[in-house]
Computed example of a mutant assay.
Amino acid sequence: MIRRGSTLERSLLLKFMQRTYQDLFPNKDFSHLEQTVKQYFSSDTPLWWVEEEGEQGEQGEQGDKGTRGQGDKGNNYTQFPIPNSQFPIACLWVGNAIDQVQGNRHAHIFILYVVPEHRRRGIGTALMRYVENWAIQRGDRQIGLQVFQSNKPALNLYNQLGYQTQSLWMVKFLSAEK
């Protein structure tokens, strides 16, 4: 079930952000992400959670792709078949960006995270399709995201969904010593 989050869920969003980075870089401290959430999380940057329903039998009819409901048309929930739990099993946090070539506002995915034991079940794909429909409804012409080059499963997902590299983010580490 996809549920629209609220700004009151700041600490849960932070936990999910820290977990996604710890999955990729296990021996690092990501306490600094609190500042990112503090600075960018607002009612203008929507958050969605995937939660399991209390009972399997309550899920209703399922579509071909395993999802029901598209976009954010007043429903807070989109359903798809997953097992039971009390804690969100995935999240999607989206902000706004400006296309530097065209000057148009568009959706930018800050984080898409599915807890490891629930991966490879179509949840990431369902969330991506959900946010694409949401972005289309609000008039966006593209969606941007940033992904680590080492995150092969995420790269595979985005490539399968038709995302293409538009630019490369390059960094050079500088020494503080002189």
Rank of each mutant, 00 (worst) to 15 (best):
Y158S: 03
F148A: 13
H108I: 10
G144S: 15
F110W: 12
W134H: 03
L161R: 07
S150W: 09
R119W: 07
Q142A: 15
I109L: 07
E117K: 14
R121P: 02
P116K: 15
Y113P: 00
D140W: 04
L112G: 02
G103V: 11
V171A: 10
Q164Y: 06
G139E: 08
G124I: 01
W134Q: 01
L168D: 09
G139P: 04
P116H: 13
Y158L: 04
Q160T: 13
V147E: 02
A107L: 03
W134T: 10
I143M: 07
N151H: 13
R129N: 13
T165K: 14
G144M: 07
N159K: 15
W169Q: 13
Y158R: 07
Y113T: 01
R105D: 08
S167H: 11
T125R: 12
Y130R: 09
D140H: 14
L168W: 07
P153Y: 08
V171K: 06
G103D: 12
V115R: 13
R129F: 12
L168G: 03
T165G: 07
P153D: 10
Y163M: 02
Y163W: 05
Q137M: 13
Y113K: 04
F110I: 07
G162I: 03
L168S: 10
R121G: 04
N156I: 05
Y113R: 02
V114R: 00
N133T: 12
G124C: 06
R121D: 04
E132F: 06
G122T: 06
H106N: 08
V171P: 00
V131E: 00
Q146D: 14
N133K: 13
T125I: 07
A126C: 09
G139A: 12
Q160C: 11
R120P: 02
P153Q: 10
P153F: 12
L127V: 07
Q146F: 09
